[in-house]
Design a protein around this nucleic acid. Sequence first.
DNA 1: GACGACTGTGGGAGCGCTCCCACACTGTGT
DNA 2: ACACAGTGTGGGAGCGCTCCCACAGTCGTC
Lengths: 362, 362
Amino acid sequence: MNGHGRSGGRPTLEEVAARAGVGRGTVSRVINGSSKVSEHTRAAVEAAVAELAYVPNRAARALAANRTDAIALVIPEPEARFFAEPYFSDVVRGVGAALAETDVQLVLTLAGSDRERRRLAQYLSGHRVDGVLLVSVHAGDPLPELLAELGIPTVISGRRSAGETLPSVDSDNLAGAAEAVRHLLGRGRRAIATITGPLDVYGAQCRLDGYRQALAAAGHPVDEELVSVGDFTEDGGRRAMRELLNRRPALDAVFAASDVMAAGARRELRAAGRRIPRDVALVGFDDSVVARHMDPPLTSVRQPIEEMGRTMTRLLLDQIAGKPQPAGGPDGRGVPGGLGAVGATGVAAVVLPNSLVVRESS
Amino acid sequence: MNGHGRSGGRPTLEEVAARAGVGRGTVSRVINGSSKVSEHTRAAVEAAVAELAYVPNRAARALAANRTDAIALVIPEPEARFFAEPYFSDVVRGVGAALAETDVQLVLTLAGSDRERRRLAQYLSGHRVDGVLLVSVHAGDPLPELLAELGIPTVISGRRSAGETLPSVDSDNLAGAAEAVRHLLGRGRRAIATITGPLDVYGAQCRLDGYRQALAAAGHPVDEELVSVGDFTEDGGRRAMRELLNRRPALDAVFAASDVMAAGARRELRAAGRRIPRDVALVGFDDSVVARHMDPPLTSVRQPIEEMGRTMTRLLLDQIAGKPQPAGGPDGRGVPGGLGAVGATGVAAVVLPNSLVVRESS
DNA sequence: GACGACTGTGGGAGCGCTCCCACACTGTGT
DNA sequence: ACACAGTGTGGGAGCGCTCCCACAGTCGTC
């Protein structure tokens, strides 16, 4: 008898076995979908399971099988505030969707302070999850390496560099930025400026590259005075916009590498008496709530965040199950609409397409 | 030997015990902070734990102790989209903060479709978590009752009625709304309209009551033509605003029971040629991103969402540990700044204060 | 100086599973 | 007739803990 008064409580495997008139092993086999069970026995077991409303004890299973049936979603807390708004909940939604059909739990881990990060490292060292989903990792973060050393399956969102060593899912930042710029060109804009993110962030660099490539492809030389570096904050966007207006007062369009920076830019443009989109067209990136509610509503590049979450999860589950990684290209393995690719080291790197949402600001 | 090749892997209690030259029981006692251990032994055990970098196996512990050290945060998915923006991540942040010092895991559960809700019910029936945090429960939701029957500790955010039967944490909707209205009165507004949420939602009803009480307290009779029922959506807000303008063209202020509805109202006011705040002052509720980025920035009632998450978690952990519920009032037990209260049935009902964030729209 | 009360401590039993070995029992080949 | 592979099946062992009973040691008490 246990302190919690379990008597008469939840049925165990043993009880199901007794009821079905079979052995424990057989019930286990049925429940885990093993093939080696006769149709007749399987039916009997399933009936017993249903009658007793049997639910396997996760802890016992984890202990015996040395796995946890849980994966962790690690959120770097401090960033959360910025990224947060739509990003966070969309990722969770995607992960949740991918997990819905499985029996895998989603454990949420916030890693805010350094102290918390150490706790987290220890936590993960304890092998308390089967795999880890890492969201918005920074270049210098030791966590990915730690996980690699521990041999814990991991998938990250957003590559940290062109030669990402961990399995990753990313959106096509370069193509998204290029599409935004082409859109502005198509609207007849010629002096198109850009406000970038911090360039040590790979994604920010990609967006800048996309800007450059689109201009180059259209035969427009890139005027470096039209490029201003921001920091993904509203204030940073505002400062960058002010600089741009000083350097090139005649600019007629701005591509900001995030909606929040676009909001800052918009404020500065207003202060300078420029009308949007008449005088200056504005395009953002992220398609966040900010974009929808801006005045005028902001044209923005939408990332398929929910799908990224879903894809990350599938990648991780496959990795845990020891299935082959989806090497993109011609093999066409189940990465939905994704442009699969394999890095030098053979790790999966799925890149999902972005799309431009056109609104009144451009 | 186990399939996963665990040999030489993580240390077990037994190994720690051997190293410290004590028995298993003693190590267990040290780790669980039991008192009955001599200082000397404790030190030896702690040294061994440190040397071996021992981390308890959660599954084994769960199995033996019949508890899971995990709590579930249940998010009703379909709503998530609306509520989502700040709410969701703030709640998680609060919960995470409260959990940071404990050894309790946060399991996230999305309950979208009815099918998923059934899965969830089954999941929870399996006693796979020690307690449940229920966010934004609706009046007709069977989940709370199910949990009560199963005897699973539960805390909900937002009371479903005045006589809430489950432990709950809520913000003071009535006082928040009243403050918003007083603020408008203080700005010299006299014809103050309100756009409510669906009135079968208790919180929406409270906000309307706050509106009424504030007007009454100031000696203004409530003009029912200035009350229009919305549905917490932008379109609903817009429709309600249109109605109000038709009925009372001379109104000079609007208190909307959510920022999103305020955004709809703003759009309609603009369309009608009213300037904000000059012609009509506008106040929202939630202090979401929408409010900060609206044009003009929206005055709004801020709910202490993160703190609500933290408080819910503490309440739940206490409940799980069998500690007495914080009966508010004069006993002054640890509910930070909260206006503790106990319902008829003696369940804890913490109500946290809201605050008004004044911006340019009023 | 024997007795109990108390304080630490060791270790057996058991939590509910999975893994896997052993054992029927079938059918096929010689 | 026998051997032998193949297919289901039962159940032992063990996963790493917690719980708790038993027991050694220490002190005070009559």
